[in-house]
């Protein structure tokens, strides 16, 4: 199977969104794998080489943020967030779709405005040259990344997410 065929077979998304989904998930997957290796290397180094990996804590913290926010657009447009479904049996599928639109609007708007503030905080942190303890890495970059990924999530939810909700839902 060619690489392109594998990706197409792997993702339920349509059109160019497939490649975006693959790219975002690739970032998350690689980060998570490196996080696992990092912890193992740190513990191994501490016991057998008497020297742990400097800044493991900082790298771990950054890795979680990178992984979580790389996945955020994908899980959001797929409707992967936890919903209380106690009343589903009493609601028709049309009503559920309408409520889905309301939720999509609320999620996108709130993420957009929140990300504006997150980005401002990132810039402030960079201006004050705040860095991590051991690696002296500017903390503002990770925060900027969180803001940008939140914007991407908001944009894709209100466009592709709504399209998917209206035309591609299974039922």
């Amino acid at each position: 199977m060619t690489f392109s065929a594998w990706v197409t077979a792997h993702y339920e998304e349509k059109g160019p969104v497939i490649w975006l989904a693959f790219f975002l998930e690739l970032i998350a997957a690689v980060t998570l794998f490196l996080l696992m290796m990092l912890t193992c290397a740190d513990v191994f180094g501490r016991y057998f080489l008497s020297n742990s990996v400097d800044g493991t804590t900082e790298l771990t913290e950054m890795a979680i943020a990178i992984m979580v926010f790389a996945e955020m657009p994908v899980i959001t447009w797929r409707g992967g967030h936890v919903v209380v479904d106690i009343l589903d049996r009493m609601m028709g599928s049309t009503l559920i779709k309408i409520l889905g639109l309301v939720a999509a609007f609320l999620m996108s708007t709130s993420l957009y405005f929140l990300a504006v503030r997150i980005f401002e905080l990132a810039e402030r942190s960079l201006r004050r040259s705040e860095v991590t303890e051991f690696l002296q890495f500017p903390t503002g970059y990770v925060v900027e990344y969180i803001a940008i990924m939140s914007w991407i999530t908001a944009a894709l939810m209100i466009s592709y997410g709504v399209y998917r909700l209206l035309f591609l839902s299974r039922d």
Partner: peptide
């Protein structure tokens, strides 16, 4: 942190 480095300890954060 600086003192720890000079002492040659294995730092755990």
């Amino acid at each position: 942190g600086e003192i720890g480095e000079r002492l040659g300890v294995t730092a755990v954060g």
